[in-house]
């Protein structure tokens, strides 16, 4: 799910660049130095995930992972996704350089929504963590499809038609993503629960764990 060069009007691209820059700045504001290795690992997982395509019917789909990036990184998810997309753009020619801001918003905002929603849904139960992981994983991809439709609407497409098309095209990815995110969440909850939790507000900076 990448928008290419020349699809969107210049004004939208520039505005998206500004908004994405603001998002990265906010991510940097919430960044804790001790989280940097974790962010690096999750970013490289996000970077590589789009290359593993699963054949499904006539086409093949690949994971997008905004849900799990949001769950693991919290507010730093936007930074991670922006870095991953920049490298995908330059090394694999996925998406255009002028559309980088749009692509970062398209994937980053759902990741932030997922991060907030997942944290809000937690009460320390593993099954609940898995269910909310599945919900958030599916929702992240569906939201990204909606953002895609929204941006295409600025280029003159009919929003509802584009949204319907994008959602239908990504329906298998949504299901796959929900399953994968639920599995990852359940596994991490058992093995390393502190990974699933980042302080949502800056006043918790440097405090380390939160109660789970």
């Amino acid at each position: 799910m990448h928008i290419s060069d020349g699809v969107l009007p210049i004004s939208v691209s520039v505005a998206a660049y500004v908004a994405a820059g603001a998002g990265v700045a906010v991510s940097l504001r919430f960044l804790r130095p001790e989280d940097l290795p974790k962010i690096a690992v999750v970013t490289s997982a996000f970077f590589v995930a789009s290359l593993i395509s699963v054949p499904m019917g006539p086409t093949s789909v690949h994971l997008l992972l905004p849900g799990i990036v949001g769950i693991l990184l919290g507010p730093a998810a936007f930074l991670s996704i922006a870095v991953g997309l920049i490298l995908q753009c330059f090394l694999f020619q996925f998406g255009g350089i002028t559309a980088l801001g749009v692509n970062a918003l398209m994937m980053g905002v759902p990741a932030l929504v997922c991060a907030g929603l997942f944290r809000w849904l937690q009460n320390g139960d593993r099954r609940r963590a898995m269910c909310s992981g599945a919900l958030v994983g599916g929702l992240g991809t569906a939201l990204a499809a909606c953002f895609l439709a929204l941006f295409l609407a600025t280029a003159g497409e009919n929003f509802f038609a584009a949204a319907k098309l994008a959602l239908v095209a990504h329906a298998p990815v949504v299901i796959l993503e929900a399953v994968v995110t639920a599995a990852m969440t359940g596994f991490l909850f058992r093995v390393k629960p502190e990974l699933l939790c980042l302080p949502p507000r800056s006043k918790w900076r440097g405090k380390g764990d939160c109660s789970l």
Partner: peptide
């Protein structure tokens, strides 16, 4: 090289 870039940057 992409993975290396990411680890290097961070």
């Amino acid at each position: 090289s992409g993975i290396g870039y990411i680890f290097g940057l961070f």
